[in-house]
Nucleic acid binder design. Structure first.
Length: 169
DNA sequence: CGCCGGATTTAA
DNA sequence: TAAATCCGGCGA
């Protein structure tokens, strides 16, 4: 599947990030090397897939919020309760469900051929931005920050109406 | 050791 | 708009 929407979480000074409390057993992968997985259970129900972005000890990652199905449509539909719409993977919980992910994948390296890998792809022609979703608990500044990014021309994106095309893309 | 609450989804 | 659902993290 192709990633169509992500949210960035940084450290320090991001009151929305799981790193805001410092280093814990759960968020350990976020402090590790880029290209590794950070998984966590959200609301006791959904498995959230994050990709560590920065170097060691920087505590940063992007939450994979939405994807576009490229191949294996039947399998995805099966795991999504028969849904075949363009938005069947629009939402982080849906991505986790389609990939059968769980917290045991936390720390997994995404660059080993033959395993669960992150591959390169052409960048979107236009990128859209918006504030992050579901971070009402964060500071006003962090709630407003335009840290949600999406392929402006893909329908496989959640909360699409709030997105604004990033000038210059 | 117990409680609180959440980077969501779904259906009413 | 609210319920489902569970464990990490914090306070005692």
């Amino acid at each position: 599947m192709r990633i169509t929407e992500v949210e960035a979480y940084r450290h320090p000074d991001d009151t929305a990030s799981h790193c805001r409390m410092g280093r814990t057993k759960r968020n350990a992968p976020m402090w590790g090397r880029a290209g590794h997985v950070y998984m966590y259970l959200c609301y006791g129900i959904h498995m959230m897939l994050n990709i560590v972005t920065n170097d060691t000890d920087e505590g940063a990652a992007v939450l994979v919020r939405s994807c576009e199905v490229v191949e294996g449509h039947d399998l995805v539909a099966q795991r999504r309760g028969g849904l075949t719409s363009a938005t069947s993977l629009a939402g982080p919980g849906k991505v986790g469900a389609a990939l059968l992910l769980d917290t045991k994948w936390s720390g997994h390296a995404l660059y080993k051929p033959g395993e669960f890998v992150l591959r390169d792809a052409p960048p979107p022609a236009r990128i859209a931005r918006a504030p992050r979703i579901g971070v009402e608990f964060a500071s006003a500044k962090d709630r407003r920050a335009l840290y949600r990014f999406a392929d402006a021309d893909s329908l496989a994106v959640s909360h699409r109406k709030a997105l604004r095309v990033w000038p210059g893309t």
